[in-house]
Simulated assay, not measured.
Amino acid sequence: MVRIDRVITRGGDAGETSLGDGERVSKDSVRVEAFGSVDEANACIGVLRLHLGCDGEADAMLARIQNDLFDVGADLCVPGDAAGRLRLGAGTVERLEREVEAMNVALPALRSFVLPAGTPGATHAHVARTIVRRAERRVVALAREQPINPLVLRYFNRLSDHLFVLARRLNLPAGGDVLWVPEGNR
């Protein structure tokens, strides 16, 4: 279990931090940038949860996702194949896929691109989706330089799909998607 006795350690005052295996790296290293972006995505999902109203099902899904993102951060902060370290599993990715499929059943087929707008919950889901995509790009950059758990990349791809479909679901009671209207049709 995690135990945090001190918040102020002064260990990062010179621009370095420790990875999960104890290695010291620059705070702007590609690995730190990757798991820092995961943390940012997690915080944004926390804000999204504030805008769900009484949607307990969506809140429960997002609570699981926030815990998943801590698992992802733990996975990314330990390079290599350290035995006994937390690694994201295939079941987590499969759960996201099932949730996307279940939400999508009740939605009409798309006939246009969707604007990131609508209800407060839907709009925050779109913001979270774009931050998740940025985190995914950071993880891709890390994967080019160092080996990572390939399930992390799959997870981010599914998570952005999840947030897109959730935004559509959250807009449904308010009349549905806010659709793109191309120039010449506006």
Rank of each mutant, 00 (worst) to 15 (best):
L172Q: 14
D13G: 07
V181T: 15
R111F: 07
S112D: 13
V139L: 06
P108D: 10
D71Q: 14
S37P: 02
V105W: 11
R169A: 14
R137V: 06
L86S: 10
F164E: 09
G22V: 01
H162C: 15
I131D: 00
D177Q: 07
L159E: 00
R111T: 12
A143E: 09
E136M: 06
A122W: 00
I65M: 09
I131Y: 02
V127P: 01
P120W: 02
S18D: 12
M1V: 15
L159V: 00
E99Y: 09
A143T: 13
D81K: 14
L62H: 10
V38A: 04
L151T: 06
I45W: 06
G84R: 05
E99D: 15
W180K: 01
V181A: 15
D177L: 04
A58V: 00
E33L: 12
A14Y: 03
G56Q: 13
G89V: 11
H124V: 08
P79Y: 03
P182N: 02
A128D: 03
L170S: 07
K27I: 01
A135K: 00
R168T: 03
V2I: 13
A167Q: 10
V93H: 02
A143P: 04
A34E: 02
P108R: 11
A102I: 05
R154D: 14
R111I: 01
L170Y: 07
A90H: 12
A82W: 04
L151M: 10
L153E: 02
L163I: 09
N185K: 15
T92M: 02
V25A: 13
E33Q: 14
S160T: 02
Q66T: 04
L96F: 08
V25K: 13
L62P: 09
V38I: 13
A122Q: 01
T92F: 00
V78C: 05
V127W: 04
V178A: 03
T92E: 04
H126W: 11
A63N: 07
E94V: 06
L76K: 00
A128G: 05
A106W: 07
L172T: 06
E183T: 06
G20H: 02
S26I: 00
D71F: 12
P120L: 08
T17C: 11
A60D: 15
P173L: 05
T9I: 03
R158I: 11
L179V: 07
I148D: 00
V105T: 09
C77H: 00
G53P: 03
V127Y: 06
A90R: 14
A34Q: 01
A90G: 12
D5V: 07
M1K: 14
N104A: 14
F70M: 13
P147W: 10
H51D: 05
L107N: 09
M1A: 15
A106H: 11
R95H: 13
G184K: 11
V47C: 09
H51F: 09
F70R: 06
R134E: 08
G36P: 08
L172K: 14
R24G: 06
V165C: 09
G84N: 04
G11S: 12
A141W: 01
V32P: 04
C44A: 15
A90I: 14
